[in-house]
Every structure is written in C-alpha cells, then in structure tokens.
Amino acid sequence: MTEFLTAAVGLILALLALGLVSILRGPGDTDRMMAAQLIGTAGIAVLLLLGTVTGVPAAVDVALILALLATFASIAFVKKGLSRLESDGVGSAEDK
C-alpha cells in the first residue's frame, strides 16, 4: 500500500511541476494565478498522502490551512487585480 501511495505522490508532484510550467509561461496574470491555485490543490493532495505514508498525522492540518488560505488568496487576487482588469476592458466594477 505504501508503495502505491508513494507512486501517487510522485504522480501528483509531476502534475504540480506541469502547473509550474504554466506559471512560467503565463501569458496572462489570470493564467498564472489559476496555475498557483492548481499547485495549491496538488499540494493539499501531496500533504494528505505524505501524512499517511510517513505517519505524520499533523500533515492533515497543514493541508487544512492550505485549503482555507489558498481560496482566500485567489479571492484577494480577483479583488486587488480588479483595477488592472478594468483598465484592460475586462471585468466589472465592484469597489467604490
């Protein structure tokens, strides 16, 4: 079972590295932020698997924190990046 889970960690890490390629390539800010979200999700999966494989139950807590704060970061991205999107002619004004 451990071998299977370790292989799963390897697979997700490989997918995570592919997400990094998307961060590097862009081309837009939104693509980059979505790639960062993908990496966050993959990181949660790796943490849950690692916690089981290596017997560190607290890894689940790290995954919990990542899940909560990655969502928060993406919302902040949309809010803070709004002025930029508006100047590009995309998005709608929500802030006064």
Binding site: G19, I23, M33, A36, I39, G43, L66
Partner: peptide, 11 residues
C-alpha cells in the same frame, strides 16, 4: 504569483 507557489512548495 511565483512567490505564492514557492510558499506552498516550501510548506
């Protein structure tokens, strides 16, 4: 954005 992803990986 690179720094945010970096933080996740360092965790």
């Amino acid at each position: 954005v690179g720094f945010v992803a970096y933080g996740l990986l360092v965790a």
